[in-house]
């Protein structure tokens, strides 16, 4: 009668509820993957941008920076660095190229990665490409 609380009912709810929401999540994820092309700027992914992503990963930039808000919080957000640096890939390349080997006394400093000219171009293009993704207007302002 009423007042029972059985383990088998709780387990059925666990199984039924999880399956229900896994299905919903997969359906939404499928819809998202279908809808992404018009938002994620994929048509602008050149070989150079792809190489830029590889350079970004191989040097573990996400270990200090955040990209689109995800990563480390030690150094500035870089999803909109292209805009912050006056929409100039040269400025980005110049900054990376000019990092002092022994850093700046007493201050946080970016290591000197000794990137080749090609790698510098690639990572700058990658950051430019990232800034053009439709990410619902994030970050709130130019400072990122």
């Amino acid at each position: 009668m009423s007042g029972t609380f059985t383990k088998s009912m709780a387990r059925n709810i666990f199984i039924g509820g999880s399956a229900f929401f896994i299905f919903l999540f997969l359906a939404l994820s499928f819809d998202t993957v279908r809808a992404l092309p018009e938002r994620d700027n994929r048509h602008n992914i050149t070989d150079q941008v792809a190489l830029g992503k590889k350079v970004w990963e191989d040097n573990n930039c996400v270990g200090c920076h955040s990209l689109m808000g995800e990563g480390a919080y030690f150094a500035p957000e870089l999803a909109n660095v292209y805009d912050r640096f006056g929409k100039s890939t040269e400025a980005i390349k110049g900054f990376i190229r000019s990092r002092p080997v022994d850093g700046i006394p007493g201050r946080r400093s970016m290591p000197q990665f000794n990137l080749s000219e090609e790698e510098l171009d690639a990572v700058a293009q990658f950051l430019k490409w990232t800034s053009e993704i439709n990410d619902a207007g994030w970050p709130p302002n130019i400072q990122g």
């Binding site: 387990r11 689109m68 990410d135 619902a136 994030w138 970050p139």
Partner: peptide, 27 residues
């Protein structure tokens, strides 16, 4: 069972709170 049912029920769709600003649709 009740607790982990609530965990998966809220946590699975809860993944959405990571999809706000990475280019995924705004729903």
């Amino acid at each position: 069972y009740v607790i982990i049912a609530m965990t998966l029920i809220t946590g699975i769709l809860g993944t959405g709170h990571h999809y706000y600003w990475i280019g995924a649709p705004e729903y």
